[in-house]
């Protein structure tokens, strides 16, 4: 494997700087954002590099659990931040986070113990990247689906209430909207499975191949990851939508949009 030097990375950084300069010249207003994001990438990745280095040297369930928790909370915050109209109170954070916890952790642990079979099962070299990939994708799916559900429920409140007036249960009244939300949460992973290898080589596989892994080994891992991600996203989105669509109503099957906050500008 060819190791990258600081000089190699600086050359790549020059490209980003050139783009920022162009943005500044053309007054696109993207320069500052671009540079801040690039700087965050460097700092966050170097830090996680250090953390992983230490973690790999000290295989300890407490440390793996601790970093998993931090990853989960960060993902939960991100899901909440992407909601236009989020649930008020703890539900806004708890709903997405809870759904991600159940699906991502269950699938990661299942994979580590029965499919990959590492010893011990929490070997950080496998556990941390796998969980990260699960959380990252489940997060996007849940964020998209919840946002779609609450936004559509808000727009279509009159239709939902009309169905309630005609004697529909809360599940019946929101079924179409929930189905739509499910579709938008699942579309990214379904699309990326459909074009995998045709349009793009998935990031993880590319990384493994660049690092010198034989292509067929990389492919097998990529297939495994794709399946896990789609299952994790599917179960996570289902759980989040179930909780959210229940929460939109009360026990008397009344639409309670007052449980949603005002939209961000």
């Amino acid at each position: 494997m060819i190791s990258l030097s600081a000089l190699d990375l600086s050359l790549a950084a020059l490209l980003v700087l050139a783009l920022a300069a162009l943005s500044w010249r053309m007054q696109l207003g993207l320069g500052a954002q671009l540079l801040i994001a690039a700087a965050r990438t460097v700092v966050q990745l170097l830090l996680i590099g250090l953390v992983l280095k230490t973690l790999f040297e000290h295989i300890d369930l407490v440390w793996v659990g601790g970093i998993s928790l931090i990853m989960l909370l960060a993902a939960g915050r991100e899901v909440m931040a992407r909601q236009q109209r989020r649930f008020t109170g703890w539900w806004g954070f708890g709903m997405g986070t809870g759904a991600m916890f159940v699906s991502s952790f269950a699938i990661t642990i299942l994979t580590l113990t029965t499919i990959i079979g590492t010893d011990p099962w929490y070997t950080p070299q496998y556990a941390v990247p796998l969980l990260g990939m699960m959380l990252g994708n489940t997060m996007s799916g849940i964020a998209l689906a919840l946002d779609r559900l609450t936004a559509t429920a808000w727009q279509q409140r009159a239709v939902i209430e009309q169905r309630l007036m005609l004697g529909a249960t809360r599940q019946e009244a929101i079924a179409d909207i929930r189905r739509d939300a499910m579709r938008s949460g699942m579309m990214p992973i379904i699309n990326s499975m459909a074009v995998a290898g045709l349009v793009s080589l998935p990031g993880m596989m590319t990384g493994q191949i660049l690092a010198g892994t034989p292509p067929m080994e990389a492919v097998k891992y990529q297939i495994l990851i794709m399946f896990l991600i789609s299952a994790g996203t599917g179960f996570g989105v289902t759980a989040a939508l179930w909780l959210a669509s229940k929460r939109l109503f009360d026990e008397r099957h009344r639409l309670r949009l007052d449980k949603l906050g005002t939209p961000k500008v």
Binding site: M165, G167, R252, H253
Partner: peptide, 20 residues
Amino acid sequence: FTAPQWRKQVALLPVESQWW
């Protein structure tokens, strides 16, 4: 009554009807 049962027996016809 459950809420759906109630609304089937106590029908509200709103000013503006909705069709989905």
